[in-house]
Design a protein around this nucleic acid. Structure first.
Length: 477
DNA sequence: TGAAATGTTGGGGCG
DNA sequence: ACGCCCCAACATTTC
């Protein structure tokens, strides 16, 4: 049983099948440098991965089993372990990024004598199971959503989940001992040498048990005010399930199941429906990743190939990354990201709009930074989100929709609680200036140890609109 | 899952 | 009583 983005025991079809069919199961995780989903993500995600693996190891041990770790090319390690153990079969759950699909296809062919069994543990629907009538992929969310809901209402069993296997048959002692390809979890070196991750991890609990507890906390109260609460970064209004879902500590089927209970989608409250849609946005992102794999680093709307971005932007990019732009809500978001590995969704949109439209820096730079610093870094959701803001994606926000960070702050962080939490320099500032400290009188401004704005918001907005008007007449790809 | 510019409406002050 | 103007509030259009 080869674990990847499915670090859980419950509702894990590959594991369930392995336990049903085999009298010994080797539970394996490989840190493969070629792996786009696991190894080519950033430092924050790898810290999470370490703790998630540790949690999975404990769960397996509690079941009398064990989790084995290896490092290197997956093909070679699998073949080596098959040789050492005399394994008869191989099981895994599918990933959907282009490099992994390609690698898994090669492995499936190379191991065809072992009848590889592959399953879906990551998504409600396979990306090839929800298509338009003409057989091509949806590029607009709403019809995608309608079609998914119709499918689930027609056949609620699609959302059924599997229990944790009652018995996970361990390797016999003699076989388990001689696995030379395997190393200890620490030897995967997922944790950084420099000790910055401890403070980040005070914000999180990793693993399947923690993920389920998080879901239950959310469903108990927060979901009932989700429509409003999810937009207020100063309070905990979101589910914060993203890293758990990314690593497969919890399955979207389980989430949807718990949300619905015995109800149909049309019986959900407005707030619950918005949450259900967020889960399906994630599905939509995987669908786009699968059908348009180049969209991870190229604009889907080819007009944007000719877009004239700003030049010599290194200093601006660094200021953005470090939360030193002089725009309070932008800096608060970037600092929350760096400190916790996570950023509130409303603020993700604001900082992305600022990078792309006010600083005129290509969205790919922001996407890379997010991929390196988010614990929930997910190729599908991240690239879709950035293309959404850039206006070059599927069903994207139009480019001329430029967020004004001052108005966004006034609207969603009225008292400035969020800004003051992450930008303590502004802690003493009056409410009406907290989102625009540059309007303070010169003396109070000088007393603040806070940068003045990197760029003028009004001016750079107009510059972005001008740059967009240069490409908007040309043909879309 | 915008913001800014522009247009419309209607109440009230005032000559 | 009436017309005129101002302007806030809201609606629509444009980017």
């Amino acid at each position: 049983m080869w674990f990847r983005q499915d670090l859980r025991l419950s509702d894990n079809p590959a594991l369930t099948e392995a336990c049903r069919r085999c009298d010994q199961v080797l539970c394996l995780f490989i840190d493969d440098p070629q792996d786009q989903t696991i190894s080519q993500v950033g430092a924050a995600s790898r810290v999470w991965l370490h703790h998630s693996l540790a949690a999975l190891q404990i769960s397996l041990r509690n079941k009398g089993s064990e989790l084995y770790f290896a490092r290197g090319a997956s093909e070679e390690i699998l073949e080596k372990l098959i040789g050492q153990t005399g394994a008869q079969r191989v099981y895994w759950n599918r990933c959907y990024d282009p490099l992994t699909i390609d690698r898994d296809r090669r492995i499936k062919l190379a191991l065809r004598d072992y009848q590889p069994g592959t399953f879906n543990a990551l998504l409600l629907q396979e990306p090839w199971d929800n298509l338009k009538g003409d057989g091509t992929a949806y590029r607009v969310f709403t019809p995608y959503w309608r079609s998914a809901v119709a499918e689930f209402d027609k056949d609620p069993q699609l959302l059924d989940t599997l229990n944790t296997p009652r018995h996970i048959p361990p390797l016999t002692r003699s076989v388990g001992k001689k696995l030379q390809a395997c190393v200890a979890l620490n030897e995967l070196c997922l944790l950084p040498e420099f000790d910055w991750h401890r403070s980040m991890m005070t914000h999180w609990r990793c693993g399947e048990v923690a993920a389920r507890a998080q879901l239950e906390r959310f469903l108990k109260s927060r979901v009932n005010d989700y429509g409003r609460g999810r937009d207020l970064p100063g309070q905990e209004g979101t589910s914060q399930l993203s890293p758990h879902l990314h690593f497969g500590e919890i399955s979207p089927r389980h989430v949807m199941n718990r949300l619905l209970g015995s109800r149909r989608f049309d019986q959900l409250s407005d707030d619950e429906l918005i949450f259900a849609k967020e889960i399906v946005w994630r599905e939509f992102a995987y669908c786009l990743l699968y059908h348009f794999p180049h969209s991870i680093d190229e604009p889907l709307d080819t007009r944007f190939r000719k877009f004239r971005w700003a030049r010599d932007t290194d200093a601006h990019l660094r200021a953005w990354q470090r939360g030193q732009t002089g725009v309070p809500i932008v800096d608060a978001g970037m600092r929350e990201l760096y400190a916790t590995g996570w950023m509130h969704n409303r603020v993700r949109m604001i900082v992305a709009s600022y990078l792309i439209k006010n600083l005129l820096i290509p969205w790919q730079s922001g996407e890379r930074w997010f991929r390196d610093t988010l614990v929930d870094a997910d190729l599908a959701s991240n690239s879709m989100g950035w293309q959404w803001t850039a206006g070059s994606g599927a069903d994207a926000s139009p480019f001329f929709r430029v967020f004004n960070p001052v108005l966004q702050g006034d609207k969603f962080d009225r008292q400035g609680d969020y800004v003051k939490r992450w930008v303590p320099e502004l802690a003493g500032i009056a409410e009406r200036y907290v989102h625009k400290p540059w309007e303070l009188d010169a003396q109070s401004r000088d007393a603040l140890d806070y940068p003045s704005p990197l760029v003028d918001l009004k001016e750079t907005r107009l510059r972005a609109l001008k740059a967009f008007s240069d490409i908007k007449g040309t043909n879309r790809g």
